[in-house]
Amino acid sequence: CFKERTRHLLREWYLQDPYPNPSKKRELAQATGLTPTQVGNWFKNRRQRDR
């Protein structure tokens, strides 16, 4: 489970761009302490949920 702060950051970025490029994923991974793969999976799952 991700911390509330991490989820908030991910949601904020998702609203700006639901399809982040690899450099954005790396930047967000550094900001949250997650791996770029975890960030990518979160975005993928969130896009699925929004369908």
Rank of each mutant, 00 (worst) to 15 (best):
C1K: 08
T32E: 06
K25Y: 09
K25T: 12
W13K: 06
E4S: 09
G33S: 06
R5S: 15
Q48P: 03
A29R: 00
P36M: 11
R26M: 11
E4M: 11
T35G: 01
R5Q: 04
K3W: 09
H8Y: 14
D50R: 03
E4T: 08
F2N: 15
Y19T: 12
K24I: 13
Y19H: 08
D50C: 04
R11I: 14
T32P: 03
E12D: 12
T32H: 02
W13N: 15
P20Q: 03
G40K: 15
R49H: 01
P18W: 07
L28D: 03
Y14K: 04
Q30A: 10
R46Y: 06
T37N: 11
F2Y: 12
R46K: 11
L28T: 05
E12M: 10
R51H: 10
R47S: 02
L34C: 03
R51W: 02
P36L: 12
D17C: 03
R46P: 06
A29Y: 00
Y14F: 12
L10M: 05
T37W: 06
E4K: 12
V39A: 01
Q38K: 05
N21Q: 12
E27R: 07
Y19C: 07
E27K: 04
P22F: 10
L10V: 00
F2H: 13
T37R: 14
Q48M: 11
D50W: 06
L28F: 07
Q30N: 08
P36C: 06
Y14D: 01
R7L: 14
N41I: 05
P20A: 02
N21G: 10
L9E: 03
L9Y: 09
Q48W: 12
N45S: 08
F2G: 13
H8M: 15
A29W: 01
R5F: 05
R5K: 10
E4C: 06
D50H: 05
K44V: 06
G40V: 05
P20W: 00
T37D: 14
R46E: 14
R5A: 08
G33N: 07
R5M: 14
T35C: 00
R51S: 05
A29M: 03
L9F: 10
L28W: 03
L10D: 04
R49N: 09
D50T: 11
R47G: 03
R47L: 05
L10R: 00
L9W: 00
Q48G: 10
Q16C: 07
F43C: 01
F2S: 15
T32A: 06
R11C: 09
D17L: 03
Q30E: 11
L15W: 08
L34Y: 06
R49K: 10
T32L: 08
A31M: 13
K44Y: 05
W42G: 02
L28E: 03
K3L: 11
R49W: 06
S23N: 11
L34I: 05
A31E: 11
P18I: 03
S23D: 14
P36D: 08
G33F: 00
K25V: 14
A31V: 11
T37L: 11
V39K: 06
Q38C: 03
K24H: 07
G40E: 13
L34H: 01
T35V: 04
Q48I: 13
K44L: 06
A29S: 13
P20M: 02
R26A: 15
K25P: 05
Q16M: 10
L10K: 00
D50V: 01
P20G: 01
R11K: 14
V39W: 01
E12R: 06
T6H: 09
D17P: 02
N45T: 07
L10T: 01
R26V: 14
W42F: 05
R7D: 15
G33D: 05
D50A: 08
Y14L: 05
R11E: 15
P20Y: 06
R7E: 15
Q48D: 10
K44T: 08
L15C: 15
P22W: 09
P36A: 10
R7P: 08
C1D: 12
D17G: 01
E12I: 10
Y14E: 03
V39D: 00
Q38F: 04
R5G: 14
Y14G: 06
G40N: 06
T32S: 09
S23T: 07
N41F: 02
L15S: 13
K25D: 04
D17E: 05
W13G: 11
A31I: 15
K3P: 12
